[in-house]
Amino acid sequence: MTDRFDLTAPAERWLWRKDTLKEPTLLQSFAFDEVHQHLYVLQLRRGGGAAGDLCLNRLDLRGKRLGHMYLRGFGHGVGMGVQHASDGTVWIWTEADARNGYGRGVTRFRFFDGAVRTRADVKVRHPVPGSTSNQPSVCMASHRIAVRHRVDGEPRYRVWDLDAFVARDYSAPIADFPQTGAHPDPGIPFQGYALAGDHIYQLAGSAYDARTNPPARRGNIHLSCLDIRTGELRERRRTEAGHSLDHREPEGLAVRHGAGGRLCLGLGSGEVGKRRFSIYFKPRAS
Protein backbone atom coordinates (compact mmCIF):
# COMPACT_ATOMS: atom_id res chain seq x y z
CA MET A 1 0.00 0.00 0.00
CA THR A 2 1.21 3.52 -0.81
CA ASP A 3 0.17 6.88 0.59
CA ARG A 4 -0.42 8.19 -2.94
CA PHE A 5 -3.70 8.21 -4.81
CA ASP A 6 -4.09 6.52 -8.18
CA LEU A 7 -4.71 9.31 -10.67
CA THR A 8 -4.95 6.77 -13.49
CA ALA A 9 -7.95 4.98 -11.93
CA PRO A 10 -11.42 5.85 -13.25
CA ALA A 11 -13.14 8.38 -11.00
CA GLU A 12 -16.15 7.07 -9.08
CA ARG A 13 -19.29 9.10 -8.45
CA TRP A 14 -20.17 9.85 -4.82
CA LEU A 15 -22.56 12.84 -4.69
CA TRP A 16 -24.45 13.85 -7.84
CA ARG A 17 -26.00 17.20 -8.81
CA LYS A 18 -26.86 18.27 -5.27
CA ASP A 19 -28.75 21.56 -4.77
CA THR A 20 -28.50 21.66 -0.98
CA LEU A 21 -26.01 24.52 -0.50
CA LYS A 22 -27.37 27.70 1.07
CA GLU A 23 -26.33 30.01 -1.77
CA PRO A 24 -27.19 29.34 -5.45
CA THR A 25 -23.52 29.79 -6.40
CA LEU A 26 -20.78 27.30 -7.23
CA LEU A 27 -18.89 25.50 -4.51
CA GLN A 28 -15.31 26.75 -4.15
CA SER A 29 -13.71 24.19 -1.84
CA PHE A 30 -14.63 21.54 0.72
CA ALA A 31 -13.18 19.48 3.57
CA PHE A 32 -14.20 16.57 5.79
CA ASP A 33 -14.77 16.20 9.52
CA GLU A 34 -14.23 12.46 9.60
CA VAL A 35 -14.83 12.17 13.35
CA HIS A 36 -18.38 13.52 13.14
CA GLN A 37 -19.02 12.50 9.51
CA HIS A 38 -19.59 16.04 8.25
CA LEU A 39 -18.76 17.66 4.94
CA TYR A 40 -17.96 21.40 4.98
CA VAL A 41 -18.38 23.35 1.73
CA LEU A 42 -17.34 26.94 0.99
CA GLN A 43 -19.04 29.04 -1.65
CA LEU A 44 -19.10 32.72 -2.59
CA ARG A 45 -22.08 34.68 -1.36
CA ARG A 46 -24.23 36.11 -4.16
CA GLY A 47 -22.67 39.39 -5.23
CA GLY A 48 -19.95 39.07 -2.60
CA GLY A 49 -16.97 38.02 -4.68
CA ALA A 50 -15.23 41.39 -4.82
CA ALA A 51 -15.60 41.81 -1.05
CA GLY A 52 -14.52 38.25 -0.26
CA ASP A 53 -17.84 37.27 1.32
CA LEU A 54 -18.24 33.53 1.76
CA CYS A 55 -20.90 31.08 2.89
CA LEU A 56 -19.78 28.00 4.82
CA ASN A 57 -22.15 25.01 4.68
CA ARG A 58 -22.14 21.99 6.97
CA LEU A 59 -23.58 18.86 5.33
CA ASP A 60 -23.94 15.22 6.22
CA LEU A 61 -22.21 12.67 4.01
CA ARG A 62 -25.31 12.28 1.85
CA GLY A 63 -25.22 15.98 1.00
CA LYS A 64 -28.06 17.15 3.25
CA ARG A 65 -27.43 20.62 4.68
CA LEU A 66 -27.21 20.72 8.47
CA GLY A 67 -26.43 24.42 8.85
CA HIS A 68 -24.52 27.38 7.44
CA MET A 69 -22.69 30.52 8.46
CA TYR A 70 -21.42 33.63 6.66
CA LEU A 71 -17.86 34.93 6.50
CA ARG A 72 -17.60 38.58 5.50
CA GLY A 73 -14.39 39.83 3.94
CA PHE A 74 -12.56 36.51 4.17
CA GLY A 75 -11.61 35.72 0.57
CA HIS A 76 -12.38 33.55 -2.44
CA GLY A 77 -12.55 30.15 -0.73
CA VAL A 78 -10.09 28.26 -2.93
CA GLY A 79 -8.85 26.18 0.02
CA MET A 80 -10.00 25.15 3.50
CA GLY A 81 -9.28 22.61 6.21
CA VAL A 82 -10.74 20.92 9.28
CA GLN A 83 -8.68 20.39 12.44
CA HIS A 84 -9.55 18.16 15.39
CA ALA A 85 -7.83 19.56 18.48
CA SER A 86 -6.72 17.36 21.37
CA ASP A 87 -9.56 18.74 23.54
CA GLY A 88 -12.16 17.65 20.97
CA THR A 89 -12.71 21.09 19.46
CA VAL A 90 -13.33 21.15 15.71
CA TRP A 91 -11.66 24.12 14.00
CA ILE A 92 -12.37 25.31 10.49
CA TRP A 93 -9.42 26.87 8.64
CA THR A 94 -9.99 29.37 5.83
CA GLU A 95 -8.30 32.35 4.25
CA ALA A 96 -9.08 35.75 5.82
CA ASP A 97 -8.38 39.48 5.60
CA ALA A 98 -9.49 39.86 1.99
CA ARG A 99 -8.26 42.51 -0.38
CA ASN A 100 -9.60 42.47 -3.94
CA GLY A 101 -11.56 39.37 -3.03
CA TYR A 102 -8.62 37.19 -1.86
CA GLY A 103 -7.24 36.59 1.63
CA ARG A 104 -3.96 38.06 2.80
CA GLY A 105 -3.83 35.65 5.73
CA VAL A 106 -5.53 32.62 7.25
CA THR A 107 -7.61 32.01 10.35
CA ARG A 108 -9.46 29.29 12.24
CA PHE A 109 -12.83 29.39 13.97
CA ARG A 110 -15.57 27.13 15.27
CA PHE A 111 -18.74 26.46 13.31
CA PHE A 112 -21.99 27.89 14.70
CA ASP A 113 -25.14 27.54 12.63
CA GLY A 114 -26.50 30.91 11.55
CA ALA A 115 -23.48 32.89 12.75
CA VAL A 116 -21.79 35.70 10.85
CA ARG A 117 -18.05 36.27 11.15
CA THR A 118 -16.12 39.36 10.10
CA ARG A 119 -12.43 40.14 10.06
CA ALA A 120 -12.82 41.77 13.48
CA ASP A 121 -14.27 38.54 14.96
CA VAL A 122 -11.27 36.31 14.25
CA LYS A 123 -7.54 36.30 14.85
CA VAL A 124 -5.90 36.52 11.45
CA ARG A 125 -2.49 34.90 10.94
CA HIS A 126 0.00 36.15 8.36
CA PRO A 127 2.53 33.29 8.19
CA VAL A 128 4.12 34.69 5.01
CA PRO A 129 4.23 38.48 5.52
CA GLY A 130 3.29 40.47 2.44
CA SER A 131 1.83 37.47 0.62
CA THR A 132 -1.56 37.45 -1.08
CA SER A 133 -4.16 34.82 -2.01
CA ASN A 134 -3.54 32.67 1.09
CA GLN A 135 -5.40 29.33 1.02
CA PRO A 136 -5.02 26.61 3.70
CA SER A 137 -5.29 22.83 3.59
CA VAL A 138 -5.03 20.56 6.66
CA CYS A 139 -3.89 16.93 6.77
CA MET A 140 -4.81 15.41 10.12
CA ALA A 141 -3.12 12.10 9.19
CA SER A 142 0.30 13.80 9.13
CA HIS A 143 -0.73 16.64 11.46
CA ARG A 144 0.37 19.29 8.99
CA ILE A 145 -1.03 22.44 7.42
CA ALA A 146 -0.19 23.87 4.00
CA VAL A 147 -0.81 27.43 2.85
CA ARG A 148 -0.83 28.22 -0.85
CA HIS A 149 -0.02 31.88 -1.35
CA ARG A 150 1.46 34.37 -3.80
CA VAL A 151 4.72 36.27 -3.41
CA ASP A 152 5.23 38.98 -6.01
CA GLY A 153 2.33 37.45 -7.89
CA GLU A 154 3.86 33.96 -8.12
CA PRO A 155 2.07 31.02 -6.42
CA ARG A 156 3.97 28.98 -3.82
CA TYR A 157 3.31 26.35 -1.16
CA ARG A 158 4.57 26.34 2.40
CA VAL A 159 3.92 23.45 4.82
CA TRP A 160 4.24 23.44 8.62
CA ASP A 161 3.74 21.10 11.55
CA LEU A 162 0.20 21.90 12.68
CA ASP A 163 1.07 22.30 16.38
CA ALA A 164 3.84 24.77 15.54
CA PHE A 165 1.52 26.70 13.25
CA VAL A 166 -1.21 26.89 15.91
CA ALA A 167 1.44 28.23 18.32
CA ARG A 168 2.28 30.89 15.67
CA ASP A 169 5.78 29.54 15.17
CA TYR A 170 6.30 29.87 11.43
CA SER A 171 10.11 29.85 11.60
CA ALA A 172 10.76 26.25 10.50
CA PRO A 173 8.43 25.14 7.71
CA ILE A 174 8.62 21.51 6.61
CA ALA A 175 8.52 22.58 2.97
CA ASP A 176 8.60 25.76 0.90
CA PHE A 177 8.49 25.55 -2.90
CA PRO A 178 6.87 27.13 -5.98
CA GLN A 179 3.66 25.77 -7.42
CA THR A 180 4.23 23.88 -10.64
CA GLY A 181 2.60 21.45 -13.06
CA ALA A 182 -1.07 22.08 -12.35
CA HIS A 183 -2.04 21.97 -16.05
CA PRO A 184 -0.26 21.54 -19.40
CA ASP A 185 -1.67 24.94 -20.39
CA PRO A 186 -0.50 27.54 -17.82
CA GLY A 187 -3.40 29.78 -18.81
CA ILE A 188 -6.02 27.33 -17.50
CA PRO A 189 -7.44 28.29 -14.06
CA PHE A 190 -6.15 26.69 -10.87
CA GLN A 191 -9.18 25.32 -8.99
CA GLY A 192 -7.99 23.84 -5.70
CA TYR A 193 -5.54 21.62 -3.85
CA ALA A 194 -5.28 19.19 -0.94
CA LEU A 195 -2.39 18.26 1.35
CA ALA A 196 -2.05 14.53 2.05
CA GLY A 197 1.07 13.36 3.87
CA ASP A 198 4.15 14.06 1.76
CA HIS A 199 2.10 15.08 -1.28
CA ILE A 200 0.02 17.97 -2.52
CA TYR A 201 -2.70 17.24 -5.07
CA GLN A 202 -3.76 19.97 -7.46
CA LEU A 203 -6.84 20.62 -9.58
CA ALA A 204 -6.97 22.79 -12.68
CA GLY A 205 -9.47 23.22 -15.48
CA SER A 206 -12.24 25.40 -16.83
CA ALA A 207 -15.97 25.14 -17.39
CA TYR A 208 -17.36 23.84 -20.66
CA ASP A 209 -17.31 26.36 -23.47
CA ALA A 210 -18.73 25.63 -26.92
CA ARG A 211 -15.69 27.14 -28.65
CA THR A 212 -12.66 26.60 -26.42
CA ASN A 213 -13.65 23.66 -24.20
CA PRO A 214 -16.60 21.83 -25.80
CA PRO A 215 -18.47 19.04 -23.98
CA ALA A 216 -17.83 16.70 -26.91
CA ARG A 217 -14.14 16.66 -25.93
CA ARG A 218 -15.06 15.95 -22.29
CA GLY A 219 -13.25 18.94 -20.88
CA ASN A 220 -9.75 19.96 -19.91
CA ILE A 221 -9.67 19.09 -16.18
CA HIS A 222 -6.33 17.82 -14.87
CA LEU A 223 -5.28 16.38 -11.51
CA SER A 224 -1.64 16.45 -10.49
CA CYS A 225 0.58 15.40 -7.58
CA LEU A 226 3.58 17.25 -6.13
CA ASP A 227 6.12 15.77 -3.71
CA ILE A 228 6.54 18.28 -0.86
CA ARG A 229 10.01 16.89 -0.07
CA THR A 230 11.36 18.05 -3.42
CA GLY A 231 8.63 20.28 -4.87
CA GLU A 232 8.70 18.13 -8.02
CA LEU A 233 5.74 17.08 -10.13
CA ARG A 234 5.21 13.35 -9.60
CA GLU A 235 2.19 12.80 -11.82
CA ARG A 236 -0.45 14.64 -13.86
CA ARG A 237 -3.53 13.16 -15.48
CA ARG A 238 -6.56 14.44 -17.34
CA THR A 239 -9.89 13.32 -15.90
CA GLU A 240 -13.26 12.92 -17.59
CA ALA A 241 -15.12 12.60 -14.27
CA GLY A 242 -18.67 13.90 -14.57
CA HIS A 243 -18.28 14.61 -18.29
CA SER A 244 -22.07 14.44 -18.83
CA LEU A 245 -22.70 17.41 -16.52
CA ASP A 246 -23.72 20.73 -18.00
CA HIS A 247 -21.34 23.61 -17.26
CA ARG A 248 -18.93 21.16 -15.48
CA GLU A 249 -16.51 23.44 -13.69
CA PRO A 250 -13.90 21.87 -11.38
CA GLU A 251 -14.05 23.33 -7.86
CA GLY A 252 -12.04 21.99 -4.94
CA LEU A 253 -10.12 18.92 -3.82
CA ALA A 254 -10.27 17.14 -0.46
CA VAL A 255 -9.03 13.89 1.06
CA ARG A 256 -11.03 11.33 3.02
CA HIS A 257 -8.79 9.01 5.00
CA GLY A 258 -11.63 6.63 5.85
CA ALA A 259 -13.13 4.09 3.44
CA GLY A 260 -9.64 3.09 2.30
CA GLY A 261 -8.69 6.63 1.37
CA ARG A 262 -10.26 8.84 -1.30
CA LEU A 263 -9.11 11.88 -3.23
CA CYS A 264 -12.34 13.78 -3.79
CA LEU A 265 -12.95 16.14 -6.71
CA GLY A 266 -15.69 18.81 -6.73
CA LEU A 267 -17.62 19.72 -9.87
CA GLY A 268 -20.10 22.57 -10.31
CA SER A 269 -22.99 22.38 -12.75
CA GLY A 270 -26.35 23.98 -13.51
CA GLU A 271 -27.46 27.41 -14.64
CA VAL A 272 -26.34 30.71 -13.15
CA GLY A 273 -28.45 31.26 -10.05
CA LYS A 274 -29.27 27.55 -9.81
CA ARG A 275 -25.90 25.92 -9.36
CA ARG A 276 -25.48 22.32 -8.21
CA PHE A 277 -22.48 20.33 -7.05
CA SER A 278 -21.17 16.82 -7.54
CA ILE A 279 -18.26 14.99 -5.94
CA TYR A 280 -16.24 12.19 -7.53
CA PHE A 281 -13.27 10.36 -6.04
CA LYS A 282 -10.08 8.51 -6.94
CA PRO A 283 -8.92 5.62 -4.72
CA ARG A 284 -5.59 5.18 -3.01
CA ALA A 285 -3.06 3.31 -5.13
CA SER A 286 -2.53 -0.35 -4.22
Score class of each variant (00 low, 15 high):
residue 208 Y to I: 01
residue 209 D to N: 13
residue 211 R to A: 13
residue 211 R to H: 12
residue 213 N to L: 11
residue 213 N to H: 11
residue 215 P to A: 14
residue 215 P to Y: 06
residue 215 P to I: 04
residue 216 A to P: 05
residue 216 A to N: 09
residue 216 A to M: 13
residue 218 R to E: 15
residue 218 R to M: 11
residue 218 R to N: 11
residue 219 G to E: 13
residue 219 G to Y: 10
residue 221 I to W: 05
residue 222 H to S: 12
residue 222 H to G: 13
residue 223 L to S: 12
residue 224 S to T: 14
residue 225 C to R: 15
residue 225 C to M: 15
residue 226 L to M: 04
residue 228 I to R: 09
residue 229 R to Q: 14
residue 230 T to I: 05
residue 230 T to E: 10
residue 231 G to Q: 01
residue 231 G to P: 07
residue 231 G to Y: 01
residue 232 E to F: 03
residue 232 E to W: 04
residue 233 L to P: 00
residue 236 R to S: 13
residue 236 R to C: 05
residue 237 R to E: 07
residue 237 R to H: 07
residue 237 R to Y: 01
residue 238 R to Q: 06
residue 238 R to D: 03
residue 239 T to M: 08
residue 239 T to L: 05
residue 243 H to N: 12
residue 244 S to E: 15
residue 246 D to I: 01
residue 246 D to Y: 01
residue 247 H to V: 08
residue 247 H to S: 08
residue 247 H to L: 10
residue 248 R to A: 13
residue 249 E to A: 13
residue 250 P to K: 12
residue 250 P to Y: 14
residue 251 E to C: 01
residue 251 E to Q: 00
residue 252 G to T: 00
residue 252 G to Y: 01
residue 253 L to H: 07
residue 253 L to E: 09
residue 254 A to S: 10
residue 255 V to A: 06
residue 256 R to K: 04
residue 257 H to Y: 05
residue 257 H to V: 03
